[in-house]
Amino acid sequence: MAETTSPQDAEQATNLPWWKSKPAKRFRRNPLALVGAFTVLAFLVIAFFAPQLSDPSRSCLRDLGVTAGTIDDINNPTKGVFWQAIFVPPESCYTMPRASFSPIPESPSADYRFGTTSSGYDIGYGLVWGARTAFNIGLIVVGLSLAMGLLIGGLAGFIGGWVDEVLMRFTDIVIAFPSLVLAIVIVTILGQTLTNVIVAIALVAWPNYARVIRAEVMKVKNLDYVESARALGSRGLRVFTKHMLPNTIAPLIVVASLDMGSVVLTASALSFLGLGPPMGYADWGQMVNFARNWILGPPGDPLAYWYTSVYPGMAILVFVLGWNLLGDAFRDAFDPRDS
């Protein structure tokens, strides 16, 4: 193979598996990295086993085809419905069950261990399924913006010239624009659904990826081995995917993990402004919005409804914090200057 001089291959040439590489070592030595990784992992487990960790509502059970007699099947890994609930839960499972229609929140009880929000929604259920919503939003947005970033950054870097100039000016504008402002405009116009929230955030989140990809492509483009690969007749796309892309992986991991946090923050801010998923959808931002009218307790007991804002607020904080710690640690691990 002609490409043995690529840095990627050079590292592989020492025959170290990735977990023994320098960045991996640096990562493991960083206690904050481990805290971050653990936090994210914990949320992942909660999100994955959401159907087992909560008592689904009646419509959710109905849509899963579960009757009163077969209700235990959800917790039984040998049954199909166990996996169905995990991998393809019906939309109705994302709706928090209601304990009542009362606007007054209920404090934690045996039935509702985390209490209920205003309008009687089960906070515990919302916390568990909200983790799923957070991952859904985060992963899809990151995936979409990655795709857009690849396309725009890749084209700009690879073709260069005026294409680069135009695309990067456009990127500059989008990146400089306050992302929340743009997202608000897009969501109100497209309509207030979860899908549109995701689309809107992706439309404002891609420039970081485009920049990173362009920068790496530009860096690698003129290296000898790429030139030689070209000379040997490798086609553009192949040069791009085989030689340029691998170099972008490290910085992309950093951007993506930091983005997971900020995307969820933006989404919850939108929900807070009333621009999120529909009422009752398990979504932490919306739960904070529910708490908005109930931050004050009755006279003499000002913190009586603490559970309505503290639980979802902490959920957002810890989730975002986990990703940020992780992203920060990745950055330190990959960045040789800091080593």
Partner: peptide
Amino acid sequence: VGDRATLAQLRGAE
């Protein structure tokens, strides 16, 4: 005040 339920936060206030 938005609705009657909210009065729970006000009843007894000096």
